[in-house]
Design a protein around this nucleic acid. Structure first.
Length: 296
DNA sequence: AGTAATCCCTGGCAGC
DNA sequence: TGCTGCCAGGGATTAC
C-alpha cells in the first residue's frame, strides 16, 4: 500500500537509476492496468523516448519524457524496480520470511506486467499483484487532460501547504475526519496507514465529524500530517506486504508505527490497548484514551 | 455537489 | 493435507 513516503522513496531511488536513459523497447503483458492509451499504442509511443526527470504529486509518479508525460499510480501493490544486467536475479523474492517478502532484483514473473528495456541493456520492471495500478500516457502538450491529477489536494511536504489553505479545505464538509483524510482532493498522498498515524499524533478520534473539530484540533492535524509522512520517508517507507523501494529493498517504518497494525498492542503514550474499527470500509486503528470520541 | 456503497484483484490465512 | 471462503485496500464508478 504505497502512500506518499513509499512513492517518494521509490522516486528518489529511480532518479539515480533510470534518469537520462533511453527506452529501447517496452513489453506490456497485462492489459488491465493500462487505461490510456491502449497497450500497443503506449508501447509504441514509449519506444525511443528518454526519461528526463521523475516528479511526484500525491501518490502519482510523473515521468517526464521527450514528448510525453507518463503518469504511474501504484495502486495497492505496485512495485517499480530497477533491473541491472550485471546483477543476478534473486529467487528469494517469492518467498515469505517472518511475514515479509524478501526481495532484491527479480526476473519477470506472472505479476510483472510492464518492463521498460533501456538501450544500455538495463531495465525497469513494474510488478503489481493486485493489478490496481494505473499507467497513463499523455503527450506533453495535452497533459491538461489529466484531470484526476490536477484535482489533487494540498501537497503536504511542499511550501504551498499552509494553515490557511488547510483550513479552507474543510469548508462545506460533513463527513468523518478519517474519510476526509483518505480523500486525495483534500491532502494528496495520505492513505490508510498515515491517516491513522496522523490522527493518533493529533489526538483525534477517527470517527469525529469534521465540522465538530475545534480550531486547535485542526491545527494539530495540520502539523501531524507532514510529521508522520516525514517520519515514514526517513525510514524508507512502511513495508507490510508488497512495498519495496526501487532497489527491491523493504522499508523499516512499520517498526515506528504508533497505531496502524497494532490492534491489541499497548499505546506508546498511555498503555491502553490499541483498538481496530472500520471507518469508510477501511481498517482503522486508534487509542480510545488518547483519541477520545467527544471533545473535552 | 457531496457523500456512501460497490467493485476490481490476488495472496494469505482461518477453519474444517 | 487441501479445500473453501473471507479479508486487505485505492480509487473509479454508481447511487442517492
Amino acid at each position: 500500500m504505497p502512500e506518499l513516503p513509499e512513492v517518494e522513496t521509490i522516486r528518489l531511488g529511480l532518479l539515480g537509476r533510470v534518469c537520462n536513459k533511453r527506452i529501447e523497447r517496452v513489453e506490456i503483458r497485462c492489459h488491465r492496468i493500462i487505461l490510456r492509451p491502449q497497450p500497443r499504442e503506449m508501447a509504441a509511443a514509449l519506444g525511443g523516448q528518454m526519461i528526463r526527470d521523475i516528479q511526484r504529486r500525491g501518490k502519482f509518479l510523473l515521468f517526464q519524457l521527450d514528448d510525453y508525460r507518463l503518469l504511474v499510480h501504484l495502486g495497492m501493490s505496485g512495485q517499480l524496480t530497477y533491473w541491472d544486467q550485471t546483477q543476478r536475479d534473486d529467487q528469494r523474492f517469492f518467498t515469505t520470511v517472518t511475514g515479509l517478502q524478501q526481495a532484491r532484483q527479480h526476473a519477470v514473473d506472472k505479476h510483472t506486467h510492464v518492463s521498460l528495456y533501456f538501450d544500455d541493456g538495463n531495465a525497469m520492471h513494474y510488478r503489481d499483484i493486485r493489478q490496481f495500478g494505473k499507467w497513463r500516457l499523455y503527450r506533453t502538450e495535452a497533459f491538461d487532460e489529466a484531470r484526476e491529477f490536477l484535482q489533487l489536494g494540498l501537497e503536504p511536504l511542499d511550501k504551498g501547504y499552509t494553515l490557511s489553505r488547510f483550513m479552507e479545505s474543510f469548508r462545506g464538509r460533513k463527513l468523518r475526519i478519517k474519510s476526509l483524510l483518505l480523500n486525495q482532493n483534500f491532502v494528496a498522498g495520505v492513505g490508510n496507514i498515515y491517516a491513522d498515524e496522523a490522527l493518533f499524533e493529533a489526538g483525534i478520534h477517527p470517527e469525529r465529524f469534521v465540522h465538530s473539530l475545534s480550531i486547535e484540533e485542526k491545527q494539530r492535524l495540520f502539523r501531524a500530517i507532514p510529521k508522520v509522512l516525514r517520519r515514514g520517508l526517513k525510514h524508507g517507507g512502511t513495508s507490510f506486504q508488497n512495498y519495496f523501494n526501487a532497489d527491491g529493498e523493504a522499508g523499516t517504518n512499520q517498526e515506528t508505527l504508533r497505531v496502524y497494525g497494532r490492534e491489541g498492542g499497548k499505546c506508546h503514550r498511555c498503555r491502553t490497548p490499541i483498538v481496530r474499527i472500520v471507518v469508510s470500509q477501511r481498517g482503522t486503528h486508534f487509542c480510545q484514551r488518547c483519541q477520545p470520541a467527544k471533545r473535552k
